[in-house]
Design a protein around this nucleic acid. Structure first.
Lengths: 225, 225
DNA sequence: GTTACGCTTAAGATTGGCTTAAGATATAAT
DNA sequence: ATTATATCTTAAGCCAATCTTAAGCGTAAC
């Protein structure tokens, strides 16, 4: 799950970034309108939600929102507005945003809205199952046969991605872009290392691995048989 | 546990604030209707109870209550009414309040009503247990193996939060927001210091800590095994 | 048999949490 | 009001978990 924040106030941007990281999201920050629009348009398919500040140096949020909407009509966009006039927010919704939130806001509130949008726009769940493995993203718990397994942040994020795409093959390139940095080198072997770690923690020796390798393409967790 | 007081008479507001602080609540005060509504709407998820004065400069209590109810149907709202006519109170309940209390009231009475509402509306308990630790929020007592442990306010609040979420991972961001009311800032190490203090007071040397660290995410008290 | 790709391991680099101590603030006592 | 005491917050250095890189090995595909 990857989120783009377009926000010029570094303190707010970082606060949101850290909070979302704790929830297992990967986050990109653009500190001005131009960068924001470029990042958004270059990687539209990668982002699951976009947070747009209203007042931005250069290009303002409304314009960015319109430009994004021209390319993609479904990606959830949330406005962060400092103004307390509701009118502006309505204006934002007309420009194609899905929701708005007034500053100052609590992180919990922001997260709730993000989850609502993700759920309604992409039927996204926060609980997963595969074989004897259970994952609860909100509680940040993974268990095997009922016993808790502890995973590091990256392991957790990788497993979440694979489970969200259960039955489909996840390409290495997309995995890298979703979980690591957008500009990560594609020939890195980080993925291998983490797939290995997951297998060691989740598989039962003697049985086929939860995660299947699709040579030349990526990895896959099979749909329950 | 966080409470919002919307009340223009400073003396009453402060009186309630101090009393609730002693009980371990975090308290926000708005001294007029507009501020009150804004605080409420911006942080709905944060508040566990809202106390609304009836007569307020600007926006009155009824209107605030209606506006809050439009957003959230379950958060307990208690009216503080100076009028002694019961009719007005009924009017308040129709606007979506859960209870009312007539001024002047004793703090004890107010607290009792708050506790009743918290219990019925969010199945919130006031007693917790984890390992050899017992916590009784109403009596403000924590004990280990039956012997009392004394905790400072912040330590108590933190432990309460962790216990209320036993089995779940509590994110640092959420903890900071709930207990310290710090928003938009993330590089503080207060949490670490207090977790450290709790561990020193509650753990038995040589055994695993009551509070587990989940790196990059937060802390957690395990469900009883 | 050769080649390309993925697996495994181990060794730096980095990040984040732990611990302490000292500086603020608030509360109680004189 | 002043001092004393408890509590809260900040900051810094240390340490350990986690992340990343890289190199050698195994194996599937051609």
């Amino acid at each position: 799950m990857r989120i783009l924040i377009v926000e010029d106030e570094t303190s707010i941007a970082n606060f949101i970034r850290d909070g979302l990281a704790e929830e297992g999201f990967a986050v990109d920050i653009a500190d001005n309108g131009k960068k924001g629009l470029q990042l958004a348009l270059d990687n539209l398919a990668e982002y699951d939600v976009i947070l747009l500040d209203w007042m931005l140096p250069g290009l303002n949020g409304i314009e960015i929102c319109r430009s994004i909407r021209r390319e993609n009509e479904i990606i959830p966009i949330i406005f962060l507005t400092a103004k307390d006039t509701v009118d502006d927010a309505v204006f934002g919704l007309e420009a194609g945003a899905n929701d708005y939130i007034r500053k100052p806001f609590s992180f919990e509130e922001l997260l709730a809205r993000i989850r609502v949008l993700m759920r309604s726009h992409q039927q996204v769940s926060t609980e997963f199952e595969a074989g004897d493995i259970l994952m609860d993203v909100e509680r940040h718990i993974v268990s095997k046969e009922g016993k808790p397994v502890d995973l590091t942040q990256k392991e957790f994020a990788l497993l979440e991605y694979l489970l969200r795409n259960k039955g489909k093959v996840c390409r290495r390139t997309r995995i890298i872009e979703k979980i690591w940095d957008i500009h990560f080198e594609h020939d890195s072997s980080v993925i291998d290392v983490y797939i290995n770690a997951l297998r060691r923690k989740l598989d039962t020796p003697g049985t086929p691995s939860l995660i299947t390798t699709v040579r030349g393409v990526g990895y896959k967790i099979e749909e329950a048989p």
